[in-house]
Simulated assay, not measured.
Amino acid sequence: MSALIATRPSPAERLADLAVQALIDEADLSPKPGLVDRRGSGAHSDLHLGLMHASAQSLWPAFAAMADAARAEGEVSQALRETLGQLGRDGEAEMLRVTAGVNTHRGAIWALGLLSASATLEPDAAADGIAMTAAALARLEDPAAPHNPDSHGARVCRRY
């Protein structure tokens, strides 16, 4: 007779589950005029609900790795910021592979990755404390980040 061993997900796995579920819930939220939702693709000819779900699921390992990196580092630091940046870029590459090059969740990788790391660093903090820790990480430079002065994000930074 073999016994089934029940294992609880690690904190990093739980955070990755929550991040992916948030992305799926956002995609499923309807109606969202002009955006992908359960009613259709909105104004996006390159997106559909199934692709949004597949993209979200492809990011699970990246979110878990970001939380694990925060656990290993134990504090907001330049080293953690650089590790999170690399893990985010790796997650983005996997997302783009799964979506055949369609940017479905690039911004979410950044936001939810920082929040996953921050929730690991501040497990007993309220949402505002986790957000403040994420902001502290976001303010640190990532020397390996690609510099594209013509990207939408770069234009927004210059404007605001």
Rank of each mutant, 00 (worst) to 15 (best):
G107K: 10
R39D: 15
A126L: 14
G50M: 13
L140N: 05
A79I: 05
E13W: 04
T104F: 06
F63R: 04
R158H: 09
H147I: 15
E26L: 00
H53F: 12
D142R: 14
H48A: 14
D17I: 08
S58P: 01
G42F: 13
A70I: 11
Y160V: 15
S151H: 08
D68M: 10
V102T: 08
H105K: 09
P149F: 07
G113Y: 05
A134I: 07
R71A: 14
P9Y: 08
I109A: 07
E73T: 09
A56Y: 04
A65R: 07
E26W: 01
L47K: 13
I5C: 04
R97G: 03
N103I: 11
A134L: 06
A72E: 13
L112S: 03
A62V: 05
A117T: 10
A117E: 05
W110C: 09
P11V: 05
S77D: 04
T7D: 12
A43I: 08
P149L: 13
H147N: 12
G88T: 11
A136P: 00
P33R: 13
K32P: 01
E122W: 02
T83C: 07
S77C: 06
L51N: 01
M132F: 10
G153V: 13
S45V: 14
V76A: 01
R89V: 11
V20E: 08
D37P: 00
S116I: 11
T120N: 00
A119Y: 01
P143Y: 08
P33E: 06
A93L: 04
E82K: 12
M95D: 04
D28V: 06
L51C: 00
L115Y: 09
E13I: 04
V156E: 00
A54C: 09
D150W: 02
S2I: 10
A3K: 13
A127D: 15
A117Q: 07
A19Q: 02
R14K: 12
P146M: 07
A131W: 10
A134M: 06
E73H: 08
E73G: 04
L121D: 00
L140A: 04
H53Q: 11
H44K: 12
S55Y: 00
A72L: 10
A16H: 01
L112A: 08
R106Q: 08
D90M: 09
G74P: 00
E94P: 05
L87P: 02
L59I: 08
D17N: 15
E75W: 05
L137S: 07
L114P: 00
D142E: 15
P31K: 11
P33S: 12
T83Q: 14
R39G: 08
G107A: 08
A79C: 03
I109Q: 09
M1Q: 07
E75M: 11
A117C: 07
A119I: 02
P9M: 10
G34I: 13
P123R: 03
P31L: 07
L29S: 11
M95V: 06
A19G: 00
Y160C: 13
P146F: 01
D46R: 01
R89A: 12
S58F: 01
F63K: 03
A108M: 10
D90N: 14
A6P: 13
P31C: 05
A145M: 14
M95H: 03
A43P: 00
D46I: 02
A154H: 14
G50L: 12
G107M: 06
E122P: 01
P61A: 04
S10D: 03
T7E: 15
D68L: 11
W60I: 01
L18V: 14
R38G: 03
A12C: 04
N103Q: 12
